[in-house]
Design a protein around this nucleic acid. Structure first.
Lengths: 139, 139
DNA sequence: TAGCATAGTAAATTAACTTTACTATGAGAG
DNA sequence: CTCTCATAGTAAAGTTAATTTACTATGCTA
């Protein structure tokens, strides 16, 4: 089994479960594409262009996601201080609640994995992934 | 850092690199959605409905991907033996070549990761991911 | 053999992303 | 100072990809 499938399958399982549990928790408008905005480290305080780059989509596509999230009351696009053109994304309270829910589900998933692998091996797994993350490999 | 981001970011990096290198190697029609068909363990010998379930998309969506891949000469949809309605997907030689290219790129990525982490830690990482894979966690 | 479930397909619709195009701001050259 | 050019953000149009709806053909079983 090559590394592609080994990473892809669990990553996708987590993604789908997040959406499912968010929808069940009352955040019904959230679809998979919205996760590009909400996932770690979240949009709060960031600028649209930075979010687009993070997510690996165009600024225009990000703008559509942001507009959608704004219409549904998750975020606000406000003018940045000290700058005429820059914008800053801010969570509304609903946005904060959704983001907290995501964290909560992820922590629950971590508990489950930890139970399955044992705490020691789970910590090892996270540590190895962190090393990969911080290396130039993922850029 | 929670497990979601730790898995998602490298998985996406691999995904994008695969597309990039496939396109550069002459498989120019392949887009990201096609990967749902081509990624491990590949469509060869499988039935459309099974592929759809694997990829987590509807049978209809899978059918569109298969038609697109058929039009571009990667696969053939042939009637399954001993059954009137079932179909079997078969790689053409071009499809085989693309699939081999994917394997090749993945092995190159594994070499890079192995060099970065060291062979021992890389083997550990794969082993831990394999345990996760085989557990009920990813279903 | 009638009724029903399943596999596969297709058309229409909806959703999501890219391409193209524009405005406004800011930075630097002259 | 002001002209030019690069950058941030946005929007509309067009394209691509997905779902929803609907249908045919096959096979099972009551």
């Amino acid at each position: 089994m090559l590394i592609g499938a080994l990473l892809r399958v669990p990553a996708r399982a987590i993604h789908r479960r997040l959406i499912r549990e968010l929808n069940a928790a009352g955040f019904e408008e959230l679809r998979l594409p919205h996760m590009a905005v909400l996932e770690f480290p979240g949009p709060d305080g960031a600028r649209p262009g930075v979010l687009a780059e993070r997510a690996g989509i165009s600024k225009q596509a990000m703008n559509q996601l942001l507009r959608s999230l704004e219409e549904h009351g998750y975020i606000a696009r406000s003018a940045a201080p000290n700058s005429g053109r820059a914008r800053i994304i801010r969570f509304t309270s609903r946005g904060h609640a959704a983001y907290s829910k995501i964290q909560e589900v992820l922590r629950e998933i971590e508990r489950e994995w930890s139970a399955e692998l044992g705490p020691k091996r789970f910590a090892q797994l996270k540590e190895l992934l962190r090393v990969v993350w911080e290396s130039p490999l993922t850029r």
